[in-house]
Design a protein around this nucleic acid. Structure first.
Lengths: 312, 312
DNA sequence: GATTGACCTGGTACCGGTTTCACAGGCTAC
DNA sequence: GTAGCCTGTGAAACCGGTACCAGGTCAATC
């Protein structure tokens, strides 16, 4: 493998001069620049990335922490980050946690090892405080509203407003009793809190029985459908935490030939379009893009992405 | 930032000894090991990843080349690669090409710079020959059958067998005239060739009019639906190159209240389940896993993943 | 008593770049 | 005439690790 010293030796110039040529810096005579450039082409030389990064102290790599890659919610955010990163010459590495706190902590430790310039948490199991403690080793961005108490950089959607908007719509449609599905209650505690707040603003206090917890996939939605179908007093609308979950609910009602309930999904995936129910598009690609921008900036700390209600 | 020299200096031992402690090697006296370890904890020292990688000449990083991250086909493969890589301590970096040959070439060049140990092509625009030329700089794995002429490592599904199986099923169901949808014809030339071969084995020569090209998304499927709905002689079954595309076709027929045609999708996504049509599951996670295994092995070169026909 | 080999330890070259600094020559300004 | 600045170049320190090699101790073996 040829390296910069080979180029220097063979061209008859110094390593410094070669380095200047590689990096398109000033103060190299045209004839020498030419000569070195042709030699580089001839020998098919490409500077070693690691050596450069080590020397410069930056990797131009961002780590994305996520539970797993194959979920539309995360896939859309990742797509946003990757696209934005690509445009600015950043590489993006996927760091799956499978919701394991220890693994997540491990990635934070890697920030110390300078493996990444920044870490973006699309979801987290550790506390915000824990994340904050690692900020000195690199930029950390989370994808939720960290509130006023935290000094973490964050890109997030206006969940509360979008939920209120959705529930208002249900009310206008004449729905009397609305069920709600969320994912793991402990995970993003914000999720259940925000849901309750939105409910409070529209339908009043959320009855415990109207909340179904622990839904992530279509199958979970199907289970939620079974739950709500048997619930008394019965619900006539359900706000689901994802289109695929909404589709699962609707599929249960369809499979058992029950009077359909109004579903409101989230994420505007194909499933809500196929099953023809309303949804909230959180513009997750934009969220990813914003998260990336925050991860390489050192000024701005917060970015709100507006959600969009799609009525069907 | 503390480094190994700081630890050495402060502990009173040499860099070599500290390095031995870090890497859990033999030949370090217990008391010194203890002392160094506590010092490491105290100073919150983590070895610099880049320096280690540079010194070792390997990065434990795999690059995945793909057109874009937000497509279920690629998302499933990526998920397989990431999970398998995680289990073996490998990091995975996403390299989006947007089908740009130049960008793809750029990533191949990066292989020279030792930024990745290996590159996995989930799709490609460059020729197999071009890829082969870069093999000397690192392992390259592609996700298609490279045939006997190429010496590239490859993980792929038995497309031909699965298409024949699907078309046989259509025949048994009494379908007379079958349409086919594929993606960009030039891209994976294998795709159109294999389709024709499978057609040949079951229905005979594929009429040019029965082939719809250039479908990637649901919307493309919708367009394909429009095309086939107006086609004479009319088709009574369509083999689509993806469930979302199949869903698009079916959605067109539904929206225009036409007699539905039998759809056969691919990938076994939620959409085929919701729209209740048959599909071919190519077990893409397994494909990704296999691709990863090949990318870090130096022996085996080929791995076939069996597809599964899911009848609905 | 000499040889062997396992156990410890430190020195230092090396991985392949970047960056700082010193120095030299030519030009302009006063 | 010289002070000052811009251009061009190379030597060498540095980034932070790994790994090879030399050298030393000590118990076991012949």
């Amino acid at each position: 493998m040829t390296n910069i010293h080979d180029i220097a030796r063979l061209s008859g110039y110094s390593v410094s001069t070669v380095s200047r040529v590689i990096n398109h810096q000033k103060y190299v005579a045209d004839d020498k620049r030419q000569k070195i450039e042709t030699l580089i082409k001839e020998l098919d030389y490409v500077p070693n990335r690691l050596a450069r990064d080590l020397s410069k102290g930056q990797t131009k790599t961002i780590g994305i922490v996520l539970p797993y890659a194959n979920h539309p919610y995360f896939a859309r955010i990742v797509d946003g980050i990757v696209s934005a990163g690509f445009a600015k010459g950043y590489k993006v590495t996927l760091l799956p946690t499978n919701y394991d706190m220890t693994v997540e902590r491990h990635y934070l430790e890697q920030l110390k090892s300078k493996a990444y310039d920044a870490l973006i948490f699309t979801s987290r199991s550790n506390s915000l405080d824990a994340l904050e403690r690692y900020q000195k080793y690199g930029r950390i961005v989370c994808c939720e509203d960290p509130g006023t108490s935290s000094c973490l950089a964050a890109a997030y959607t206006d969940r509360l407003a979008s939920y209120v908007r959705a529930l208002m719509w249900a009310k206008q449609q004449g729905c009397q009793n609305v069920g709600v599905v969320i994912s793991r209650d402990n995970l993003i505690s914000a999720s259940s809190r925000v849901t309750r707040m939105a409910y409070q603003e529209t339908y009043g206090k959320l009855p415990a029985a109207n909340l179904f917890t622990g839904a992530v996939t279509f199958e979970d939605g199907y289970r939620a459908g079974r739950y709500f179908a048997k619930l008394k007093p019965s619900v006539d609308a359900i706000l689901a935490n994802g289109d695929d979950i909404g589709a699962g609910i609707q599929d249960y009602y369809r499979a058992h030939q029950l009077t359909p309930v109004k579903i409101i999904g989230q994420e505007n995936l194909l499933s809500s379009r196929l099953m023809q129910f309303s949804t909230i598009d959180h513009h997750l690609e934009a969220l990813g893009k914003a998260a990336f921008e925050l991860s390489i900036s050192h000024g701005q700390k917060h970015q709100l992405i507006k959600s969009e209600f799609i009525e069907r």
